[in-house]
Design a binder for these strands. Structure first.
Length: 376
DNA sequence: AATTCGGGGTC
DNA sequence: GACCCAGAATT
């Protein structure tokens, strides 16, 4: 008897911690308080000006792992150039990637483009309107499907992302690592139990807005919180210790070299291959920084890969940047071609200075391109 | 269950 | 520097 009771208590940490919260709190009054707050503090955002599923979809893809402030201008430009799903579907991928340049996670742009073609072809232009249909689109996972279905189609679908993870963890007083799947499951369950049958779109946006503006990562503003009375963390004074999250990765410092090789008005560029970082984007020829004499070693590397006979100058530009789990120190060299022709089906290609503006580059590639006059 | 995939904001 | 951001797909 005592034994089974003990087991029951330890399993409270799992699914039933959710039920414990709902036992202690009225979800109707929680929803009311939240929506009342949201109607006052709701921020204007370009994708909130309509409920056009296409625009909601584009915004949700852009917002994956990307802050609202960063997305706003990208969204405006993207919708200006690709105002409908049909226009996106018939665009070429390079122009889509060009609009995405600087946002990062470029797979999102390629999948968005692929999904637009799917919608036009398989759904005959009728936008997928349910979570289950939306999940068939590449780049659309559980969060994004729930967000689109609820915001654009008023489906009662739950969401879970950065803001709501933090909010829910504090509301329940969750002290477990929110990155492990067991905790994710608890958080999804919480979202499922909380989402209303009607008005889920507004409700979900209100949750995220509260997480973003009030239940902030650092410095949560509990005095301004409309649902403070439902917050276990606040009642225990542990709101600053929650959420607990294991580190995502450790940084590794690496050094690279890039080369701006000129031939007349053209510059040697390389199309990043599908298996590489920046797939589909253009980059300057780039290598791990060679040991020994960088100029002579780089000259040999480029000659081997491109087939060109060339002459390199000294270092002209040094950039530091971080990408994924790497801190990169990138040194850039200028150079001229003496003779030779490009190898066939190497990813290299001569690009005129003017055309570089139209190509999608990585953020560092664009920095090099902008200071290209320093190499001539 | 881990890793990959960017880049900028912020303290 | 270190962590976060309206995550998804792959290994």
């Amino acid at each position: 008897m005592k034994k089974s009771r003990k087991i029951a208590i330890s399993t409270v940490n799992d699914e039933q911690i959710v039920e414990a919260w709902f036992d202690q709190n009225s979800k109707q009054s929680f929803r009311q308080s939240l929506l009342k707050w949201f109607r006052v503090h709701r921020r204007e955002m370009p994708w909130r000006e309509s409920r056009d599923p296409y625009r909601v979809w584009v915004s949700e893809i852009m917002l994956q792992q990307t802050q609202v402030a960063t997305v706003i201008d990208y969204f405006r430009r993207f919708i200006r150039q690709f105002p409908t799903v049909q226009r996106l579907a018939t665009a070429d991928e390079q122009s889509v990637l060009r609009q995405w340049e600087g946002l990062g996670y470029y797979r999102r742009a390629r999948q968005l483009h692929a999904a637009a073609k799917m919608i036009v072809a398989e759904f005959e232009g009728t936008f997928p309107a349910t979570v289950d249909e939306l999940l068939r689109l590449p780049g659309v996972g559980r969060y994004t499907a729930g967000a689109i279905a609820s915001i654009a189609f008023d489906e009662s679908a739950p969401i879970l992302e950065g803001n709501t993870v933090r909010l829910f963890a504090r509301l329940m007083g969750l002290t477990e690592d929110v990155r492990v799947s067991k905790t994710q499951k608890i958080l999804w369950r919480f979202s499922e139990r909380l989402v209303p049958a009607k008005g889920a779109g507004e409700f979900n946006q209100a949750l995220m807005e509260l997480g973003s503006l009030v239940c902030r990562d650092r410095d949560p503003n509990c005095r301004a919180c409309p649902v403070a009375r439902s917050c276990v963390a606040l009642s225990l004074g542990t709101q600053r210790e929650i959420p607990v999250a294991s580190p995502k990765f450790e940084y590794e410092s690496i050094r690279e070299a890039a080369v701006v090789l000129r031939r007349g008005k053209n510059v040697l560029m390389r199309l990043c291959q599908p298996s590489e970082r920046w797939a589909g984007l253009w980059d300057f020829p780039r290598y791990p920084f060679p040991h020994g004499d960088p100029v002579s070693n780089l000259t040999r590397l480029i000659k081997k890969d491109s087939g060109l006979d060339l002459e390199l100058d000294e270092e002209r530009l040094s950039l530091r940047h971080a990408v994924t789990r790497f801190r990169i120190e990138l040194k850039c060299y200028g150079g001229r071609v003496r003779s030779g022709r490009l190898k066939r089906n190497s990813a290299f290609q001569w690009v005129s200075l003017h055309d570089i503006d139209e190509l999608p580059l990585s953020a560092t590639g664009r920095k090099i391109a902008r200071s290209i006059s320093a190499f001539f």
